[in-house]
Design a protein around this nucleic acid. Structure first.
Lengths: 208, 208
DNA sequence: GTTTAAATTAAACGCTTGTTTAAATTTGTT
DNA sequence: AACAAATTTAAACAAGCGTTTAATTTAAAC
């Protein structure tokens, strides 16, 4: 898919992503973005109209191809539990390599004041949930998954675990001795991913 | 435990809590706090020194008695799994009835720029983890809990699930038809709490 | 090469920010 | 009642905010 933004716009968007993620939307000024991106303050208004619209553009720019990735996964020929594991891996990989925008989404779109812009984001989440539902129902029909799980609460467990870990990065770096960025990333890719997969598997398959 | 803050200070703190939670630290101005609390803008500086120190005071004011609650739980005469369930309930109840401050902690103390104030908060988290560890090791000794779980990752699953649900409140209100505040609260108290307990139990007890 | 449109700039706009000042008021003590 | 200390106030401060303006430079079209 070709992007609707030109070079200059992308340059601004990517600086904005870093700064919004680092210091929040309110904590970042247009002058701050302009300085880092080495452009004039007026360029943001010129290209995006306003600071608020810059944020919207950023979200469009970064989340437009997730749905495709999920659809591809659904059509693979795998056992339900393997699909779940792959979905967890996909989520974590994706969020982990787009930390900036997901941090921004997490921080800015949970507050009341931005509820009006929520629609596109909300549709994205509903689509994601639908994909998960499809996989789980398939597993239930096959008699592999238990039927008393509340499917909409599984996403919070997957994403919430990851986010809570990542949002408390300094704490866990210290606690688990993850001194370098590589060690930290590796811990996410292996231990944290495995923990989440293990947790969801236990939840779906366990029979008391 | 008696509070170190006088009436006027508490009045300011509680308004600040509401506004910080609602609009974020950067999104809330001292004049905004002053207007809602019906005091003069200068009073914040007079009583707390600065806006930043107001935030620190707020955290002290709201988190000073959690440790006691956890210690009491540890000394109860219960099976490990019941202690875990009670701990989950305690966490959720506590966070749920102090949503403001936990939202603020979650939002403000995960960004790089406030890392220096993190120490007191970090100690709190370490203490909480220690309590959880004690319970799980007890269960492992008794042969009830599996031994290949990564204990520090259980807290992210418990709290992360809750937070992710709560941070996406508008989405889940819509999805699950929780039209009133009462319905929403009740869903947390019953279904969400049960989901988390079920998840952690499955994780701890499941044997492949 | 001239004309037209797009991009970029510096400067200014009015407004809000956190904090300080110094004067006024209230409260407590003798 | 008189004094001192604590509290509260309105006003001012400099600095930063998002956005707009109008002039200038660059690029494209003819």
């Amino acid at each position: 898919m070709k992007s609707n933004f030109n070079e200059k716009q992308i340059q601004i968007l990517e600086v904005a992503e870093v700064l919004f993620a680092e210091k929040g939307f309110d904590g970042t000024s247009i002058r701050n973005i302009a300085k880092v991106a080495k452009i004039n303050v007026a360029m943001v208004s010129y290209y995006f109209g306003s600071k608020e619209r810059l944020l919207e553009s950023l979200i469009v720019y970064r989340t437009s191809d997730l749905k495709n990735q999920l659809d591809n996964l659904l059509q693979e020929d795998l056992e339900p539990i393997d699909k779940i594991n792959k979905l967890i891996e996909l989520y974590i990989n994706r969020i982990n390599s787009n930390r900036g925008i997901y941090r921004i989404l997490h921080f800015e779109f949970t507050s009341k004041k931005r509820e009006q812009n929520l629609q596109a984001f909300s549709e994205l989440k509903k689509g994601n949930l639908k994909s998960l539902e499809t996989i789980i129902e398939e597993g239930q029909k096959k008699g592999i998954f238990r039927k008393d799980v509340i499917i909409p609460l599984i996403t919070p467990t997957i994403l919430g675990t990851f986010f809570h870990f990542h949002m408390n990065k300094p704490f866990f770096e210290n606690l688990l001795n993850l001194k370098t960025e590589d060690l930290y990333n590796n811990y996410i890719k292996t231990n944290l991913t495995k923990h989440i997969q293990q947790t969801i598997k236990a939840l779906l398959i366990y029979e008391s």
